[in-house]
């Protein structure tokens, strides 16, 4: 969907007050994986607030990306318990598999690899999120299977 049409649809759905901003931003991320400058300007127009205010809000939240991201955003928990349970191995496995470093996106725009704070699964660490999906008690073997699944899943 064209970005303007998407934002119009979201504004119709959630409303055009400031308190509707975050659901709209989340709606854009859901579709586009990130909020482009064009999208931010359009949201500012719909809500009649300044683009700087939209940008300021986006950059506050880890999930409201303002830079392009891959179709699958992998977020590895880096909090202490996951760290103790093998976070480093998880990251190196992912980096090897995807051939990117933390913070980067694959050339085919399929995967982005990020770190994140506590995901709330410390008893089953190490864990990661792929988009909204949680994967717990990760091992290199498990990670390879998960990534293979997403690589296959073309749609």
């Amino acid at each position: 969907m064209e970005i303007k049409a998407l934002i119009f649809k979201l504004a119709e759905k959630y409303g055009r007050k400031r308190e509707n901003l975050i659901p709209i931003l989340q709606g854009v991320v859901q579709e586009e994986r990130y909020i482009s400058d064009e999208a931010m300007v359009e949201i500012a127009r719909q809500l009649d607030i300044s683009a700087a205010q939209v940008y300021g809000t986006c950059t506050f939240y880890s999930f409201l990306n303002t830079k392009p991201k891959g179709k699958y955003i992998i977020r590895v928990c880096e909090t202490i318990v996951c760290d103790m349970r093998g976070k480093k191995e998880v990251i190196s496995t992912l980096e090897d598999l995807l051939k990117i470093k933390i913070g980067e996106t694959t050339h085919n725009k399929r995967f982005s690899l990020l770190k994140t704070e506590c995901l709330g699964w410390c008893h089953k660490g190490p864990v990661m999120l792929v988009n909204d999906e949680v994967y717990t008690e990760l091992t290199p073997e498990k990670i390879r299977n998960i990534i293979a699944k997403y690589k296959e899943n073309i749609n």
């Binding site: 931010m40 300044s50 700087a52 940008y55 300021g56 506050f60």
Partner: peptide, 19 residues
């Protein structure tokens, strides 16, 4: 006018224009 706003958070928090 709201040309300036606060952007980012924590150690990176700064006063910023749009983008």
């Amino acid at each position: 006018v709201n040309a300036l706003d606060v952007a980012y958070r924590g150690k990176d928090m700064k006063i910023s224009t749009f983008m």
